[in-house]
Design a protein around this nucleic acid. Structure first.
Lengths: 205, 205
DNA sequence: GTCTATAAGATGATAGAC
DNA sequence: GTCTATCATCTTATAGAC
């Protein structure tokens, strides 16, 4: 069925719309949202800036659609891990791996979230970003507390600090990880999990 | 001795100039360099935007002076650690602590470096940022390799990945750490060093 | 050291032709 | 679906008065 309305609905797979969003995501990730102009996006897409407004209301609408779509997918995966019957250590490992997978498969979206979510979150339209942030914190804190309770994690951990340590350690990798170059995201996740759980010191060294 | 030239020299302690740089640093750290306008800075300082150009050539000159001054101080500390006679583990610990101290005492400068160095580094004027980055990498890699060689660190570590892990883990804290609120920077450094060296898993857990 | 006034260019967005 | 043309606003920076 062909699109009839001027602006395709949010979930649409309209090829052109999706392509424009990919182009915009690449630029937002590279230069930041505010430092990317609608002219940059139009240039990269091979059209003029005014033509973008046939597809989208505004620059904000573009980043909104990019981020909200990504977050839905990511949190569906977290929910699945929380609901699984594995032990806390296995769930923590899976949550770390899911995050590195996101860096592999949704690099631009993760980069945009890391760089611009704080600023965007101050506008009512992007209030869901703060909600998702709180939800993410809940996921990690729940897993860490469960790990301490069941004795797989050290009892003297500061839960909040450990949460921040894991969150930052995992997501900040988007700054240097380039899909297809060097180590795979699975290799990196393996080593990160190892350092996180066992540290870098030689036991008894 | 009073200032005679229109624009005070770089190292000057001229009160007004230093105050304007502090104001600018606060805004750059909060909103990013490109998203801070000279009007923002002038407003925060209680003057009009044109008046800023009596003190500084350009917005770039301001961030240049802020970053280069900070980097000189930071790397003097790294050099001192490298030159000390301690063992690798102690030197690594001290390097981590020096970094958290920088977050405590030079919060804005660290935040600006974390957020804007990549972008600024693409201009010839800021080539020194890339040099300093390479120098920093050298410091950490040297310490990690020494640690592996002397048997205080695990022999199976990927040195480059471990370097990135430590670098990111330490500096990203500037995103959430607020001097004077909650844990002190020393407390945080203690726990970070502990997690980094020994991990979060309960031994034999 | 700050102000008034303004230049020169970039920016997000719109209206209507093709 | 894209282009032409354009607006209103914001941005960095300058020149000269006070």
């Amino acid at each position: 069925m062909p699109e009839t309305s001027t602006q395709a609905p949010k979930g649409s797979t309209s090829g052109r719309r999706a392509e424009l969003l990919r182009v915009a995501a690449g630029l937002f990730a590279e230069k930041g949202f505010r430092n990317t102009t609608v002219r940059d996006i139009a240039d990269a897409a091979g059209i003029l800036s005014g033509s973008l407004y046939h597809h989208f209301d505004s620059k904000e609408s573009m980043v909104d659609e990019i981020l909200s779509t990504f977050q839905e997918q990511l949190f569906a995966q977290y929910d699945e891990i929380l609901a699984s019957g594995e032990d806390a250590r296995a769930k923590l490992e899976r949550a770390v791996r899911v995050s590195f997978e996101a860096i592999e498969n949704h690099h631009d979206e993760v980069a945009i979230y890391q760089n611009d979510a704080d600023h965007l979150g101050t506008f009512p339209r992007f209030a869901y970003l703060a909600d998702r942030n709180a939800q993410s914190r809940q996921v990690w804190v729940t897993l860490i507390e469960e790990g301490v309770r069941t004795g797989v994690l050290r009892a003297d951990l500061d839960v909040t600090l450990t949460y921040r340590f894991i969150r930052d350690t995992v997501w900040v990798a988007v700054r240097w990880y380039q899909p297809g170059r060097g180590l795979t995201h699975t290799d990196i996740a393996d080593q990160y999990v190892r350092i996180l759980l066992d540290g870098i010191a030689k036991p008894g060294g």
